[in-house]
């Protein structure tokens, strides 16, 4: 099976600190891959490199056979708009937009008309059981609701890969569980691969396999053949 997204010997430094040191990883279409590791191990940096947010100092990241490290910023932005989705731990919803408008934002950025974007967004909110906050602003919704809105926003463009960085990091167990269940179920339905950065085993347990980042290197668990 050909991997959908790969990192090959990726190195990245913040000044003198090596966040990634020859890290390699494969992500297959439709799988849920947990990126685990202690804090500061470089797992978020790896996620940002995979998503084309950061450009590695050396090494290669390919998506669907295309080398995204060689792409222009514009092309990578376009790729992020159409093929990738993102869920972060916090601070990702635009506070002045309503939840519905937040979900519709990636669609609007991709050029979908307002009405159509909002119709599709409403469906996703329903699906994630937060239709009732559609008209509210994120500040007026609870943390769990906010994360579900964020998940809806990541899914609404039907991306091929969703990058989730500690998506339940700011939630209690019950809310976290519910978000993960809805998130992973929805991702599996749409066939999106998920790269899930987490340091929580119970969250990682929603994955199909895990990769461990330690000191900037990746130890990747392969599927039993």
């Amino acid at each position: 099976m050909q991997p959908l997204l790969t990192a090959e010997d990726v190195t990245y430094s913040f000044g003198p600190t090596h966040a990634l040191d020859s890290a390699s990883l494969r992500v297959y279409a439709g799988e849920v891959l947990a990126l685990m590791g202690p804090s500061g191990s470089g797992k978020s940096t790896l996620l940002h490199c995979l998503a084309g947010i950061l450009t590695p100092d050396s090494g290669q990241v390919t998506f669907d056979g295309r080398d995204i490290t060689a792409m222009s910023d514009t092309a990578r932005s376009a790729l992020r708009r159409t093929d990738f989705g993102f869920v972060f731990q916090f601070g990702q919803l635009v506070p002045e937009l309503s939840c519905l408008e937040n979900v519709a934002l990636p669609l609007r950025l991709a050029g979908v008309g307002r009405r159509e974007a909002q119709r599709r967004s409403a469906e996703w909110l329903e699906r994630l059981e937060v239709a009732d906050v559609a008209g509210k602003r994120p500040g007026q919704a609870s943390g769990g609701q906010g994360q579900r809105v964020a998940v809806a926003r990541a899914l609404v463009t039907r991306p091929r890969v969703i990058f989730a960085d500690e998506p339940t990091g700011a939630l209690d167990s019950l809310n976290g569980e519910r978000v993960m269940q809805l998130f992973i179920a929805a991702a599996r339905d749409t066939g999106a691969a998920v790269v899930l950065v987490t340091h929580e085993a119970r969250v990682a347990a929603y994955s199909d396999r895990e990769a461990v980042v330690r000191d900037g290197r990746v130890r990747e668990q392969e599927y039993a053949r």
């Binding site: 932005s77 990738f84 993102f86 990636p106 950025l109």
Partner: peptide, 15 residues
């Protein structure tokens, strides 16, 4: 942070 998130999911700087 919000700006960085917006850029992450592909918002053009022009926007």
């Amino acid at each position: 942070r919000l700006l960085a998130v917006l850029v992450a999911f592909g918002t053009r700087r022009g926007t």
